[in-house]
Amino acid sequence: MENNSPALPPKQTVKLRINGAEKQLELAPWTSLLDALREHLNLTGTKKGCDHGQCGACTVLVDGRRINSCLTLAMMQEDKEITTVEGLAKDGELHPVQQAFINHDAFQCGYCTPGQICSVIGLVNEGKAKTLDDIRDLMSGNICRCGAYVNIVKVVQEALERSETR
């Protein structure tokens, strides 16, 4: 049987820097960053909601920018600073955006939430959102089927205010 196998892409060593820690993996090159996180590193906080760049559940931060981790291969993200939801709390203390999600009840099932949280942080970093409508537009890449949008917007407003007073 071995002999008949179609040629498969050989595994290679991929070095990823995730939440401040160096991770070395043996990965087939067709492994998405999302699957590398969830299936190879057991970092299941980052969610799969479509695997096609259509829902935002897989949003992570790469060098501070929000990206859909299902739309990039793990091996393309070497030498970059990847932050997932698991890396936001520091010494047991929640990131202010995480805390704001709890305070405003900005989720229900919680499945879109890690992506939303990373997206809010990315949005603040971008510095583009000025108005309420901007916020709604720029958060529209993250679907919440539970419909927590009204509360998510409150979280973003609070995060923007915080960044201004900094």
Partner: peptide, 21 residues
């Protein structure tokens, strides 16, 4: 009252069906 499972959900600790590796 804030959700008692809120912390698990915002930190990624909450495990959904496909996440039991």
């Amino acid at each position: 009252t804030s959700r008692v499972d809120g912390r698990a959900k915002v930190t990624g600790e909450a495990k959904y069906a496909a996440e039991f590796n």
